[in-house]
Design a binder for these strands. Structure first.
Lengths: 242, 242
DNA sequence: CGCTGGCTTGATTCTATTCAATTTTCGTGG
DNA sequence: CCACGAAAATTGAATAGAATCAAGCCAGCG
């Protein structure tokens, strides 16, 4: 991986809903958690790293030396089952954190879906600081809560019976991840069909058929394979809830 | 809900794996996160609450005024889908925390599966303290990481193709939740078949058939409907990974 | 302009769901 | 302590839906 110490932007950024405060700063949107001072401090321990599209960032079982904070690009977090098929845990976008560990080792693998720029935060330094700096740590708590809720939503998605319901909910989740302001904006799908399949637990064939049906029913409209627009939001919601 | 301010035990207890340190204090087991001072302080803001078996602790959408820390008993966290069926998010055991919120409201519902005793920690007081006390907060970070990993394992379980694989993995997860020391100990299932079904996303009928088959293949042995013993751990692992 | 990998589509197979009937368990009150 | 009723669990038969496998198609890229 390419590394440079120079801090390109103003330092790390983390985005999440506050678990406790309601509607702050504005309802319906995650807010920026770090203040300038915190970003500046984090910048002193962070390196900016870059990865090419398709490059592996870390693999299951490796010592977890870094926590990553995305500047630009998208990554997929995945697990490989016995049979070799990838089960996708989640997708991460700019201002997300990834690199979750257990007992000092990564418990999943990460791969860049697009060219990626990120801050690499050494876990050792981060840990030392966090035990002392409550305010900084507090923001990590908020982010963790956010990711936990997201993981639970994913589990909820996986419990949908019909392929169409899974796909409908998947599109809703993706839209929110990209926190599109206007209702009319297009959703960009940085992952291929196999990755979608791995995330919602369907065969690639079923994903293909499902998306075809959604388009046929005029619920969504594809500009090309990676750009969708939600045409009938109402019906999509109904489908998502079976 | 019944409330009393008296602190029965020595104060709240939280258990988890440390995300960063490896094998501390002993490999393979979660450790106690709070020190005596922290427990004492938490005890000053906590009330001890009790719930009867089957009682609802909180419901989706209510203001999240408390975070709960289980002293004894088991709770299920669940979501209700459109059709009225319950999707179970997770089960919580003693020394767990529950009551996750988003923007000040509970995002799921909680019900006692057994008679329950817990500490109710007012979120407002907790939040105030956490912003100042880094060490205390650090332990909550560790616990959140723990739950996040657990949620991701759940999603992984849901992605298993065959009913038997789901059940095998479910039993493994339950065993770990109860962190049985010896290999020979029995697993206690505090939930009914419908709850198992809701957690692993199968029909109750399929759960029944699956457990029957596991028993028939001598992989597990039921003493009664709620007590299982893993007889052939090796085969169970194979089945769990399909 | 052709090649390669991703994507789509079709036919078949297989597994869990559904729904209903039956048995077992559990809680209650006699 | 036992008997009863209600709820939970099991079982069976039919059905529906996605997986699988294989073949063809399209898109992006050299």
């Amino acid at each position: 991986m390419a590394t440079k110490s120079l801090n390109l932007a103003g330092g790390p950024l983390i985005r999440a809903f506050d678990p406790w405060l309601s509607g702050y700063p504005s309802p319906g949107k995650p807010h920026q958690l770090l203040n300038d001072e915190e970003r500046a401090w984090l910048a002193t321990i962070a390196s900016v790293v870059r990865f090419k599209k398709g490059e592996t960032i870390y693999s299951f079982g490796e010592p977890a030396t870094f926590l990553f904070n995305i500047i630009s690009g998208v990554v997929k977090i995945y697990l490989v089952a016995r049979k070799g098929e990838e089960s996708i845990v989640c997708f991460h976008y700019p201002e997300d954190l990834f690199g979750l560990a257990e007992k000092g080792k990564y418990i999943n693998s990460a791969k860049a879906l697009t060219p990626l720029t990120a801050y690499a935060l050494p876990t050792a330094a981060l840990r030392t600081r966090m035990v002392k700096d409550a305010a900084l740590e507090f923001h990590f708590v908020a982010k963790l809560c956010h990711d936990l809720r997201e993981a639970q939503r994913h589990a909820f998605l996986l419990a949908r019976r019909h392929a169409i319901a899974k796909l409908a909910m998947f599109l809703q989740l993706q839209e929110r991840l990209q926190s599109v302001a206007g209702q009319q904006a297009e959703i960009y799908l940085p992952m291929d069909r196999a990755d979608i399949a791995g995330y919602i637990d369907l065969s690639p064939a079923a994903v293909s058929r499902g998306l075809r049906d959604l388009a046929a029913r005029r619920v969504v409209k594809f500009r090309d394979r990676r750009h969708v627009k939600i045409v009938n939001r109402k019906v999509l919601e109904e489908l998502a809830s079976e």
